[in-house]
Design a binder for these strands. Sequence first.
DNA 1: GATGAATGAGCCTTCATTCAT
DNA 2: AATGAATGAAGGCTCATTCAT
Lengths: 188, 188, 188, 188
Amino acid sequence: MDNKREQILRAAENIIANDGLHNLSMQKLAKDAGVAAGTIYRYFADKDALIDELRRDVLTQIANFILEDASKGSLEDRFRRIWFNIIRLGETCTLERLNFEQYTHLPGANSEEHRKFERETFAPLHLLFAEAKAQGLMLDMDDELLFALAFEPAVGLCRRMRRTGLNFQQSELEQVCDLCWRAIKPHQ
Amino acid sequence: MDNKREQILRAAENIIANDGLHNLSMQKLAKDAGVAAGTIYRYFADKDALIDELRRDVLTQIANFILEDASKGSLEDRFRRIWFNIIRLGETCTLERLNFEQYTHLPGANSEEHRKFERETFAPLHLLFAEAKAQGLMLDMDDELLFALAFEPAVGLCRRMRRTGLNFQQSELEQVCDLCWRAIKPHQ
Amino acid sequence: MDNKREQILRAAENIIANDGLHNLSMQKLAKDAGVAAGTIYRYFADKDALIDELRRDVLTQIANFILEDASKGSLEDRFRRIWFNIIRLGETCTLERLNFEQYTHLPGANSEEHRKFERETFAPLHLLFAEAKAQGLMLDMDDELLFALAFEPAVGLCRRMRRTGLNFQQSELEQVCDLCWRAIKPHQ
Amino acid sequence: MDNKREQILRAAENIIANDGLHNLSMQKLAKDAGVAAGTIYRYFADKDALIDELRRDVLTQIANFILEDASKGSLEDRFRRIWFNIIRLGETCTLERLNFEQYTHLPGANSEEHRKFERETFAPLHLLFAEAKAQGLMLDMDDELLFALAFEPAVGLCRRMRRTGLNFQQSELEQVCDLCWRAIKPHQ
DNA sequence: GATGAATGAGCCTTCATTCAT
DNA sequence: AATGAATGAAGGCTCATTCAT
C-alpha cells in the first residue's frame, strides 16, 4: 500500500506546520507517521528529497485550492473567487496543513527548478491575466506586477490572520477585494 | 565595554544573512565575533535569547530604514517615500544585513510579545494613516486593511525580486506605487 | 536447485573483491545475486555463516590453484610449480575473485576451526615436504619453518605487487625461486 | 594536556587489536579512551583521519622496534638483530598493540602517500642493504627481492605464531635466520 | 570577566534480520 | 520456497551548553 508515502508526507507537513522545519527530525517524523525510521528511507532518498517532495506536494495542494473553479463565470467572478480562495486558505489555519507562507520558507523554494514548477502549476492564473488583458479588463502590465496589485493584499491579510489569529469581517474583505479589482482595471 | 554584545549580534546577523539560520552555530558565531564560545553566554542566556534580541534589533533597523524621512513633506510624498523604502530594502541585498524576508523567518517572529513590539516600532505608520484618514485622503478602514492594500504589493514585489534575482524598471514601480496610492484614496 | 547458494557466494566474493568487505550489505548482495534479501537466509543462517562458508569456499579455490599439478614431475619441478602458482595467484588481480590477501582478512580466518580446515586443504603440501625430506632433498625441519623459508618470499612478493601495482621481471622471480629452493636444500 | 590525543590513539589501537577494525565504533572508542564522543572530534577531523593517524603512529612504533640498534656491529650482526626484532615483534602479541599484519590491513595502508611514508620510515633498512651490497656481502638485487628473501620468512613466522599462539624454539629460529642470511649472500 | 576544552544528547542514515504474503 | 517491505538498533557526527582555569 502506497499510502505509507502519503502518511509520511502528511506527518511531515503537520510537524512543520506546528513546530517549524527545525523541529522536523526523522525520528519524530517516523513516530508521528507511525512507521519505523528506516521505512522513511524506502520512500525518500534522504531528508532533502523528502522536503523537495513535500514542497511540490504542498504547492500542488495550494494551487488546487486557490484555482478551484477558476475557469467558470465572468472574469470578475473568477478573479473574486481566486481572491477569496486565497483568504479561505489563510483562514483554514488548521495546524495540520502548511500555509502558503510556511511553504515559501521551505528550503529550495527559490531554486530555479522549483520556480519553474511553480509557474507551471499556476499557469491558469496567467491564462486569466492574458484573457483579461485581451478583453481590456485589466491593465496591460507584467503579470508579476498585476499579481502584486491584485492578490498580494490578500496574501498579506492571510499572513496577518495567521499571525494574530484574528479574522476580518466578510464585508471588510469584500471591500478590499473590490479595491483590488479596481486597482488593476484600466481607469474607466 | 558593551560592544562585545554588539559584535556578537552583528556576527549573528551576518551568518544568518549569508548562510541561513540553520548554519548559525554558537562555535561559528563565537569565532566570527572574535570571542570565546563561553563569552556569548555572559551576554545572552542561551541561543533562543540571542535570537530574540537579534529579532528585535533587526526589526528596529528595518523600521528605521523604512520610516526614514516618513514625517516630512505632503502625505502623498510620505506615502511614496515609505513605499519605495520598502522596495529599496528588498533591493538592498547586502550579505551583511538580514533582509525583511529573512527577518520574518526568525523563530518567534509570530509570538504575541514580538508582535506587540512590532506594533510599537511601526507606530509612525499608524500615525500617518490616522492623519491621512483625518484629512480625508485615505479610506476610513482598519489599518491592517489599509496596509494590505497600500504596501503589501511592494512587499510582494520585494519577495519576488529576491526569489528571482530580477529587478523591475523604475517606471513600472512608479506605476504600481501610483495605483496603490489611488487604491486607498476615497473615490472622490 | 542449489545453484542459488552458488550465485550468492559468487556475488559475495565479487562484492568483497571489488568494494571490500565493509561494502558487503545483505541488500546489495541480494540484488547482485538476483535473489530477494530474505532468500539468503534460507541458505545461510546469518551474515557470519555466509562469510564462514565463503572463507572455506575461497580457500578451496586458492588451494586448487596453488596446488594444481603439484604431484607431477620431479620434486624440484613440483616445488617450482607451486612457487610460481603463488606468484600467479598474486598477479591474477581479477575483480571477480578474491585474492589471497583479501582472503586472509576475512573475519574468522584465524579461528582454530578454520586453521584446521586450512591444514587439511593444504595437506598435499605437507606430503610434498614429507617426500622431499625422506629423499634428503629438503632440510629436516618443522613444516612451518620450511614453508616460511620456501614460500613466504613468494607470498611477500605477491603482497608487494598488489600494494604497489608493479610486477617483477620473470628472470628476477626465477632467481628468487631458485634461492628459495637452495635455502631449504641440505648444504650438499 | 595533549595526552588525550594519545589516550584516544592507544584506545583505538587496543580495540582494533582485540576486536578488529569493524568493531571500532566512535562510541566504544570514546568510552574506552575515557572521553566523550564529541571530544574525539576535537583531535581528529573524522574517523578516517583518526585511522590515518593511527596507521602512521603504529608504523613508526613498529619501525622503531624493528630497527632498534640496527646500526651497531657488523653487517651480519645488524641483519640478525633486525631479523630477530621482527620475530620479537610477533612474539609480543600483547592484546594491547597492533601487530604488523593487522597494521597492513588498515585502510589506506596501500595508498601511494602512505607507502612513501613507509619508505622513509624504513630508510635505515635500505641503507643496510646498500652497504652490504657495496661490500659484496649481499646479492646485488632489487631491495624488494632482498627483503622478501631475507625477512619475509620472519614475517611469515610471526603471522604463524600469532595465528596459532604457539612459539618456536630459539634454536629453530636461529637456524632459519641463518638460512635467510645465507640465501642472500653471494655464493662464495 | 573571559576562555575554550569537554560534554553528551540528539541528529541523519544504514543495514542485518524478520515475517506476512 | 521466495519475496521484499518493514523494522529498529547502532553508527558517525554536530553542537548548545558548562565549568575549571
